[in-house]
Each structure stands twice: as C-alpha cells, then as structure tokens.
C-alpha cells in the first residue's frame, strides 16, 4: 500500500466499525440489508479481479464464470445432495477451481488482449452450459433453492446474521489478500505485471505463477459467487455471463485497481448506485453505461488511486516506501501500464 501502514490500518478499522454498524444504519438510509450483503460479496468478487488486473497484469473479462460456478456449485449441491451451509460454499469454491483448472491452460498461451478474448470466450462456455441444461439448472429461468442449515445445527441464518457471516468472509479475504500481495509470491506477481519478459529472465516460470494467480482468483470469485447464491437463494446464467465480468472489472477500476480497498469502494458505488437507479428509472442502463465512460475517461486510476495520488503530491513523495520490502510495503499500487 502506498498509504503508510498506519494510515491504512486506521482506515481499515474505521471501515470495519462502519460495516459492523451497517445493519443499524442501513434502515435509516432506506437500504435493504440484502443490498449491503451484496456490496460485501461484490467487493470480494472484485478483489478476485483485482488480483489479476492490479497485481498480475492480466485482464480477466471472464471472471464471472467462476462467480457463477460458485453460485451453481452451491445451489446444485444443496438441491441434489442436500449439503449444509458451509459445505455448499466449499463445493461452490471447488466448482470454480475446477472451472479454472479446465480453462486456465488455454488462457495461459496468450497475453494482453488475446488473453482477454480467450477468457471471454471460454468463460462463456459455462454460461451456455447453465443455459442449455435446463433439466438440472433450470436454464434461462435459473434455479431457486433454500438457504441450508449450518453444519451440526438446525439453524439457517436469516438475512441479518447472514450479513455478519459475509462480513466475516470479507474481513478474512481482505486480510489474506493483504498478506498475499506482500508475500514473496505476491512480489513475483507484481514483477510479472511490471515486465513479464524480465520476470522470466530472472528465473520465474511465469506461466506457473499466472496459473496459480488464476486459481486463487477463481477460488475467491467462487466463494463470492457461492455466498451470493446463498444470499439471494437463486442462481441463474446471468451470474456467469461476461456482462457480469464487465461489472466486476468496472468495480475494480472504479475503486482503484492495485489497491486493497479499491474493490470495496467500487462495489459500494456500483451496487448502491444501481439499486437506487434501477428503482427510480426504467432506463437505468444509460446512466450505468455512462458510469463506465466517465470512469474510464475521468478516473482511470480509480477513486482511491486518484485520492492517493493527490495526497502524495502534497507530501511530495514518490509513492514508494523506502524500506525493506520483503516484510514491509512497496509500491503495489500503480496505474496500469500501457
């Protein structure tokens, strides 16, 4: 993080307190608790995208396939095997991982826009599978399922407690993510993003690193998807569609790719914004599309990236922490390179 560690930690704690109080605050703002849950889950999904865009330098425009696999993985195993709460989430993650294992080797052959093109196309396979195998998945109409009971209990968390469980996942993933991008592995990913050729000539088998990054991203995306499925008790092909990937990428860029909190900020604006817009105007896709355009042309570094830049300019620093980097912090937040 470019912010000093302490400022980042304080920001994280303030955010955490706000998120804990959210179920109390939300009704005052006329926000449904399910919308707040969605903010958290989409933030997790955008973190998965951020790992690839912001830290590995590959462009995932098919990541929603893993999100949807998570949702279907949970839904189908609840429906057909009657698995319980956490098992269904675990199986959703597993489904996403299997998906990544299958398509990963195809994607790794190319980089740049060709990687994205392959990712869009291979991701779409799962969309059509869900769409076509109506007997199992319910096809276009999607599938409804009940939120199962937690293992060893007869308690199926209602929306309120569900929110707090998701907050737990969000914090957990946030911390793991923070550790990951600071680990030697995370540094290697950043190096690959900066200059893959150089990374290879420093002895990194970059295909392997990118593949593992893809698997981690898929697992996080699968977790978000499985929880999302449990949240709305529904899975449908649109959760797998590349339009959904586009939304996740927008959230990441809008908040600030390559930053820890960026995806959350992006998700917050996106989810609350579309919630308000879609209930206010029937043609809400126009302002949504305009948000894409404004973000790309006006805030290419995202909201957090722009703020951090402004702060730095005032301090007159480089934006790089001058200290040891294996344990400490380095520039992991950068504008995406051309």
């Amino acid at each position: 993080m470019r912010m000093s560690n302490r400022a980042g930690l304080i920001a994280a704690l303030v955010l955490l307190v706000l998120l804990i109080l959210t179920p109390q605050i939300a009704p005052l703002l006329h926000l449904a608790i399910s919308v707040c849950t969605e903010v958290l889950l989409f933030a997790i999904a955008a973190m998965a995208v951020n790992l690839l865009i912001g830290y590995t330098g590959v462009l995932p425009f098919g990541n929603a396939a893993f999100f949807g696999l998570g949702a279907y993985g949970a839904g189908l195993t609840i429906q057909f095997w009657h698995v319980k709460f956490f098992s269904s989430i675990g199986l959703g993650v597993l489904a996403a991982l299997i998906g990544a294992f299958l398509i990963g080797p195809f994607l790794l052959r190319r980089r740049g826009i060709y990687f994205s093109l392959l990712f869009i196309a291979f991701g779409q396979v799962f969309y059509f599978l869900a769409y076509r195998f109506t007997d199992i998945t319910g096809g276009e109409d999607g599938m409804n399922f009940a939120r199962p009971v937690i293992e060893g209990t007869s308690f199926s968390p209602p929306d309120g407690s569900f929110y707090y469980m998701m907050l737990g996942f969000f914090v957990l993933i946030g911390i793991l993510f923070w550790l990951l991008v600071r680990s030697p592995f995370g540094r290697s990913l950043i190096a690959i993003k900066e200059n893959e050729t150089r990374a290879r000539y420093l002895g990194l088998d970059t295909d392997r690193f990118i593949f593992v990054a893809l698997l981690i991203s898929a697992a996080i995306e699968g977790l978000a998807g499985a929880c999302y499925g449990l949240s709305i008790m529904f899975a449908d092909p649109l959760q797998l569609d590349w339009h959904q990937s586009g939304n996740f990428v927008l959230m990441t860029i809008l908040g600030g790719s390559g930053t820890i909190f960026g995806p959350f900020i992006g998700s917050l604006i996106f989810v609350i914004g579309s919630d308000i817009l879609s209930s206010a105007i029937p043609w809400w896709q126009i302002p949504l599309g305009a948000l894409f355009v404004v973000c790309v042309l006006g805030f290419p570094k995202g909201i957090l990236g722009t703020i951090l830049d402004a702060l730095e300019k005032r301090r007159g620093g480089f934006g790089y922490e001058a200290r040891d980097t294996l344990h400490g912090t380095v520039a992991s937040e950068r504008e995406i390179q051309p």
């Binding site: 586009g246 126009i286 599309g289 948000l291 290419p300 995406i336 390179q337």
Partner: peptide, 20 residues
C-alpha cells in the same frame, strides 16, 4: 496508448447505453 482494460470497459459501457 493505455491499458486495453480501458477500451474494453468503455466499449462495454457504450453497448449498455446503446441497448437501452
């Protein structure tokens, strides 16, 4: 001259607007 993610997002946004 920028990362392809930007033109992808932009043209995606345009397609959303156009459709509506």
């Amino acid at each position: 001259r920028r990362d392809p993610v930007y033109s992808l997002l932009l043209t995606f946004g345009l397609s959303l607007i156009a459709e509506e």
